[in-house]
Nucleic acid binder design. Sequence first.
DNA 1: CATTCCAGTAAACACCGTTAACGGTAAACG
DNA 2: CGTTTACCGTTAACGGTGTTTACTGGAATG
Lengths: 259, 259
Amino acid sequence: MTSSTASGRRERQREATYAEIVSTARALLAEGGELSLRAIAQRMGITAPALYRYVANYQELVDLVAFEIDKAATTRFAEAAARYPDDDPAGQLVAATAAFRSWALANPREFGLVFANPIADSSCVRRDLLTSATSGHFMNGLLVRIFHERGIPHPALDELDPEVRAAVLDPLIPIDASAIDEADRGVLWIFMRAWQTLYGVVTLEVFGHMDPRVIESAAMFTAAMHSQLPPLGLDAEPEGPRLQAILAAELAREAAQKP
Amino acid sequence: MTSSTASGRRERQREATYAEIVSTARALLAEGGELSLRAIAQRMGITAPALYRYVANYQELVDLVAFEIDKAATTRFAEAAARYPDDDPAGQLVAATAAFRSWALANPREFGLVFANPIADSSCVRRDLLTSATSGHFMNGLLVRIFHERGIPHPALDELDPEVRAAVLDPLIPIDASAIDEADRGVLWIFMRAWQTLYGVVTLEVFGHMDPRVIESAAMFTAAMHSQLPPLGLDAEPEGPRLQAILAAELAREAAQKP
DNA sequence: CATTCCAGTAAACACCGTTAACGGTAAACG
DNA sequence: CGTTTACCGTTAACGGTGTTTACTGGAATG
C-alpha cells in the first residue's frame, strides 16, 4: 500500500540507487561507451547481477534511461523556448524545435535510444512511452497554447479518415486531450502532421542519409519547418517572416556555439 | 592485377561463398533471428573465424548484407512500378513509393539495417552507400524521367543556399548527375526534399512513434505523399487526382494482400 | 614435382545478458 | 529487547557474442 514516494529509509535508499543507475548509464553513454549492464555495474562499484534487483531485464533499463534522457532533453528545449516571452508560444515552439534538432545532432545515440527504437513490438512499458514522452507533452503543450491564443485551421471531424477520427477522439499521443474540445479535435491531426515533419527531417539528418553539406547548412531542416507554417496558420504576414527570422536566429546561435 | 570478375576457379569459389554468406544472413534475418557471425557460420557448416577470410569485421558484413537487401528491395519497387506503363514515370514513382512503405512496414529490421543505420561516422565503405544505394538510383531515375518528360519547377542555382548549391553541383546522392544540365541542377534540391518526405514518414511509421491507427490507415503516409505533388509539379488537374487515385489503389492493393 | 597460397579449424580472450544459490545486514515484528 | 523477515549484494556459472592467434590440409600455381 506504500506509494512510490514512501518515506521509509529503505525506500529512499532504493530510489537513490535507481537514480545512480540512470545517471551512470547516461554518463557512460555520453562518453561514447556502449550501454551495458556490466559496464554500469562496474562503474557503480557493484556486480552486474545486483542490477537485477532494480530492473527486470536489459530492455527495461534501456527504457528507463531513455525516459530520463527524454526528460533531460526536454529541459533543454524548455530553456531554448524560455528565451521568448510566454505570450509568444509560436516563437517558443520554433526555438524548441531548433533545440530539438541541435540536441539530436549533438547526441545521436541518445536520440536513437529515445526516438529511433521500435516501440510497437515491445512491452506495455514501452508502449506507455507513446503517451508519456516528456518532450512530446512539452511540444504539444506549446501547440495547444498556439491553438487557444490565435487558433489553428483544422479539418472538421467528419472530414477525417474514420481511423484518424477515432485516433483524435481517443488520442494515444503525449497530450492532455481535455485541453481541446471534442469538436476541435481535428486540430490533433495537424499536430500529428507537424510532429511527423519534425521527426522525419531530424531523423534523416541524424542518420545521415543525405548530403552532409545539406545537413550542415540546416537547409533541409529550415525548409521542412517553413513547410509547416501554413498548416499551423502561422504563415501570414507578419507572423510568418517573424517566425522564420526566429528560426534563423536560433540556428545561427547554435552554429556559433558549436566550434 | 586481376579484376573483380577474374575467371580463376579460385575466384569463382570465393565469389560463391560471398553470395552464400549474404543469402544465409538474409535468411536468418527473415526468420527473426539476430544477425550474428556465429549464427551465419553455424548455418553454413563453418566456424565463425572462417568468415574473417571474407569480411574484415562485423560491421562490414552488415554493410554488405544491407547493400544486398537494398538491391533485392529495389526489384520489388520496380515490380510495383512495372504495373504502370513506361511512359508514365509519375505513376511508376507513386507505385514505387507505396511499395517502399509496405516493404518497410513488413520488414522493419531490414529497413532499419539499410535506412536507419548511422553512416556518417562509419568507414568509407558505408559512406559510399550514400551514392550507391540501388533503391536511391531507382527512385531518382524515375524523378529524372519525370523532369525530362514534363519538367519540374525548381529554383535557379543562385536562389539556393550556397552550401546546397555546392551539393547539387557536385552531388553526393545516388543519381547520375550527368543526366541533368548544370543549369537545372536546382531540381536536385526538389529531389532531396521529396526523399526527405518519403524517408521521414516511413521511418516514423516503422519505428511506431505515432498512433497505431494512423499508421494502419496510411493516412499520414498519404498526406505526406500528397504534400509532395505540388513541389514536383504534379498537382495540377488532371495529373494530381490521377496520381492520388493511383496511390490509393496501390495502398488498397497492399491492404488486400496483407491478411 | 615442389612450392606457395589460402580456406578453414581449434583454442583462447574479453566481453555480453541472465540465472541460481548463498551470505550478511538492516528493517520489522512480537 | 530478541527474533524473524525481507532484501541487497555477492560468487559461480551458462550460453551467447565479436575477434585474434597459431596451426593444418589441400588445391592452384610455378
